[in-house]
Amino acid sequence: MALPGIASFLVTIGTLACIWGLLALGLNVHYGYTGLLNFGHVAFFAAGAYASAVLTMPPPEQVSQANYVIGLDLPMPLGFPVSLAVAALAGGLLALLIGSTSVRLGSHYLAIATFALAGIFEDVLVNETWLTNGTFGMNSVPKPMRETLGAGGWQVAYLAFSALCLLGVYLLLDRLIDAPFGRLLRGVRESEDAARMLGKDTNLVKLKSFAIGGAIAGFAGGLYAHFLGSVVTEQFVAGVTFVVWAAILLGGVASSSGAIVGAFLLIAFQQSTRFILTIYGWIQSVLPEPLSGVLPAIFAPLPDHPSFVPSVRFIVIGCLFVLVIRYRPEGLFGDPNEVTVMGEEE
């Protein structure tokens, strides 16, 4: 039983929004609570997705166009939680690795270092075909219990599972941030010197924050891999990092619920703009005769090439960065007091 078009579309958006919500929660641990400028978030996401793919893909002999060597073919559905756990572990370990080299850098240098390291990681994914199947991608990642539930039922079930995961991570973080450790994170954000004076190893605190956020992103990667059933390098470009950034800036830094709302708004915006041309065609078809020349006359001067609509989407995201920072640095749901302590000089 398959879902009708619109319902299927909404379920897909919902699932993607949950996954991006997880990414935003992870980045919010870095930037929102600890003040770490992480511009390489996509690398942790990718690490999780590829870890899941390598664990659960069938061995290369059974797949066409396979150039990879390792496919552990973990049985579904029992292997699914294992795969997600390993994905989180992979994201966390990569974050530890990247963090241990660069977390002690000043904030701006950290931004560049994470950006560069994510760039290297992307290069590795593209080039190390034996592990990642290169740009062709790993396209037989199993969708757990797909056969038992049928296409439509599976989509709904996966949405429910993703939403549960998001809720679980949200609650966990909520506890963590209220715990002494959460206060320590914010202490480091607000004044490293003060935290150090109290005898806290601030680099270690930052490293832990980095690993926690990275593990959440890795977990999101595993969820994403089993949702799409394929993992391709093209999905893990630097743009992903900045969409997540836009989400937490819009929702409100240092606010977990804000980060989730931001992610939902951005995914809804991104996905719904795919239908602008369809909607345009529909309006055009129902307009009465004398008006049918109006729309084409308005839009005719716009360039006509396939990249036009997608690029407008990114222009809007760019404007979001600029406008939120200028007019509402605390975002929709953030606390203005949290922002003034983040290196903003009033």
């Binding site: 950034w245 222009i315 979001l320 960065f321 600029v322 920072i325 290196g343």
Partner: peptide, 14 residues
């Protein structure tokens, strides 16, 4: 510098 840096990301996208 932080708001300027984040703004520059937005400007890059635009």
């Amino acid at each position: 510098a932080l708001p300027l840096l984040i703004t520059s990301i937005g400007v890059a996208f635009i």
